[in-house]
Structures are given as C-alpha cells and as structure tokens.
Amino acid sequence: TAGNKIFHFGACRVSMSMTEIRSGFTAIKANIQSRDPIRSLSILSHPHSLHKVKTSDRCCITHHLFDFYVDKVFKHCKTEDSFVNRKISSIANSFLSVRRRLGQCHEQNNCVCGEESTEKFNQILANYEGLNVTSAAMKSLGELDILLDWME
C-alpha cells in the first residue's frame, strides 16, 4: 500500500511505515533545513555517499544509523514550533519501533557488521561531532531523506 514497506537485509526482515515517516519529514523539511546554515557540509554523505556501502553491510549501517538518530539526533531538535515538534515526535517514535526490529536481527546474528560499515559509521560520527550539537542534530535531521532514499 502507500503505507508499509518490508526491507530485506539478508536474513533480516524489517517492516516500516515508510509513507508515514516520509510524510512527517516532508511536512517539516523546509523548516528544518532553513535552520542549517552550513549547507556545504554533509553528515551522512561526506566523504562518501551511503550508496558506496556494500550490500552485505547494509543491515549493519542501517542499524547503526537508526541508533544514531534515536540516541543522538532527535532529542536535540526541539524547536519553538509545536507543529514541527509533533512531526519530529512522529518520526522519532516510528524510528524507535523500527530500531527495535533491527536490534532483534542484530541479536539473532542476522545483521553482521563488517569493517566497511564500521568505518563508514565512524566517519558519520566524526562529521556529527565536528559541529556543535544543535547544528549537527538539525543537519542530520535535514538529511533524513538521504537515508530514506538510500533505504528504498
């Protein structure tokens, strides 16, 4: 349907309401990106795009990224705009339930981390920590469609 998508990462199978997440993000994308003054820098795509990640590493990098957004990003994105905050909450709660399923795959050894995904994720963390936390969080949230596009 226009609703759910089943993602297959090897033996790991994750169902995700992609449309709900995308519509929540689309509703606030312009607002969030307008809060990101440093347009030349990217958190997710510097120096290499996510598309360079090997298929075998996709599950692990996805798991890492959902952890990243849940643990580090969303909590630093509170705004003065109630509508924006509600949409961020909607995305964050959706990410939480998907992350749980990815975590189960990880525990069942169906989401193995290779060297490349670990290296790529460390680069993302370095990009994130190179900025002050609010700017880094807002930039990461503004790049959510990069993650969603890559996943799809």
Binding site: D71, N85, S89, A92
Partner: peptide
C-alpha cells in the same frame, strides 16, 4: 497533550501539546 515511547525513554518524559 501526548507522550510517545520516544519521549519517555529519550526526551526526559516530555509531553507535546496537540494544538
């Protein structure tokens, strides 16, 4: 107001108003 699981576990049990 509402509070999702994310707000309880990661955002200091904050509540959000439904305007």
């Amino acid at each position: 107001e509402f509070q999702g699981e994310y707000e309880r576990e990661y955002a200091n049990e904050s509540w959000l108003p439904i305007s």
